[in-house]
Design a protein around this nucleic acid. Sequence first.
DNA 1: CAAATAGTGTCTCTAAGACAATATCAC
DNA 2: GTGATATTGTCTTAGAGACACTATTTG
Lengths: 274, 274
Amino acid sequence: MSDEKDFLSAYRQDDYPRPSVTADIVVFMVRAEDSGNYRRDSRTKLSLLLIRRGGHPFKDCWALPGGFLNPDETIEQCALREVQEETAVKPASLLSVGLFSEPNRDPRGWIISNAFVSIISEEKVRQQSGDDASDAEWFDVDFTQEDDGGYMLTLTYRDVTLRAVLTEESSSFGRTSFLIKDSGGLAFDHARIIATALTVLRSGAKEFEYIFDFLPETFTLTQLQNVQETIMNISVLPANFRRKIAPLVEQTDLFTQGAGHRPAKLYRRKKETK
Amino acid sequence: MSDEKDFLSAYRQDDYPRPSVTADIVVFMVRAEDSGNYRRDSRTKLSLLLIRRGGHPFKDCWALPGGFLNPDETIEQCALREVQEETAVKPASLLSVGLFSEPNRDPRGWIISNAFVSIISEEKVRQQSGDDASDAEWFDVDFTQEDDGGYMLTLTYRDVTLRAVLTEESSSFGRTSFLIKDSGGLAFDHARIIATALTVLRSGAKEFEYIFDFLPETFTLTQLQNVQETIMNISVLPANFRRKIAPLVEQTDLFTQGAGHRPAKLYRRKKETK
DNA sequence: CAAATAGTGTCTCTAAGACAATATCAC
DNA sequence: GTGATATTGTCTTAGAGACACTATTTG
């Protein structure tokens, strides 16, 4: 059909207005925090990566890592590229949260953003730390529902505390969407993106999706349980957790050592059997 | 900060290449098909809306309804607008499937599309039918996994049959993504979008999400069960279905009439109790 | 031994699936 | 009554949650 060729060569994209498109990524990590005590296990905290903006707009505010989509890549490749530029680590998983397209979400103009959740293990981050003197920092995450039904998102890094207030806008199948009442100093609509990303992460962690991605190749069941409890802000009995997770993991011959108490068997994730 | 104002007024979006952005919508409906027999209930089929393309590219192929995002609307508003333009019906629900951004998915150039699932009740469609002589038609859907692990998507409207072949690319938390092996005559990457949309719909229907949206305000439990069975391509025992759905519905005083058998009580969806 | 975590056994209760039985209409 | 669908009852089994108990290391 040269008919079609004619059409395509005559086609001009400029006839329609076009937005800039970005990917913003909520990079999660579960960190172990030394709890002082001489042989007690360390507590774990959920944290996410924020970057201090050096330029306008929202200069000096904290924002999610992200960047513009290039014509030769998919939005997933773009997100992956941006994470790696920022952390030098390839994330274990990347899942879409949704497209944020409020017309006025960015003061620079018409810029829409597809948000992603990305998961990195602390192990990999440690291997890389030190080689960038950038303004990227890991903030501890606390996200809880208030008595009045609103939500409070608190992000903490050393003496910096960002506290955003949100309300639930709609909820559908593991994804809740939020409205910002107070951005707490976060740039753009990033408080909203983070809140939505957290609901996605939590609803996945419930059925053990993603929780393996926070840990190294081999891990103890207690570590795995800690990850789930940390993400979901719950606590379950070890016996029950072990029973539920059993079909998804397999033993190795290795044990932990020198922890001041009984060694734990190391497990690895079992390949899906279908 | 006039500093920031200066920056913003100097900012030029044209410095970065920008894609056109569209919303494509997979509009689902569950249709009752008269099965001839004098007092046997009609069978139900899942169907979706396709539009015959009048212009290039993919002239005369069938495609999903959709259109370009305007600067003054969100992508959800855009999707809603496009559905209404095509069907004159306001869909009961609209949920995002994801952003499809393969660089060469559209021969016209760099055009990325956020896909949505939208659900319409047959009742509302019937109220509207006739007033558009457009090229929009409802195709019956059959989507099954083959023995070789591949997937077959068959869309049927009268004597038109579109048969696409796909393979599973990745799967994560209720969303499976596909690769097209044979588009079956569907335009663009729409076979892929439809397949992904079906996995989203099915994973939601499992826990009774969305199934109410296919029916009128009041309905019988058998109708509701038919919707779920039709979508998921399964069958469950009525007693068990009723027990599971009971907390989500409430009775009305009404009954069906003149069906040639025992009347069924009409129910309505119960408001969420939290 | 004490402190701490690792790991197992089992009781109870609830929910899911299977199946049987009864109810009520149009004709 | 017959044929069809509507609706309820209950048996069995699988899984979730709670709890008590045993095991193994370091200091």
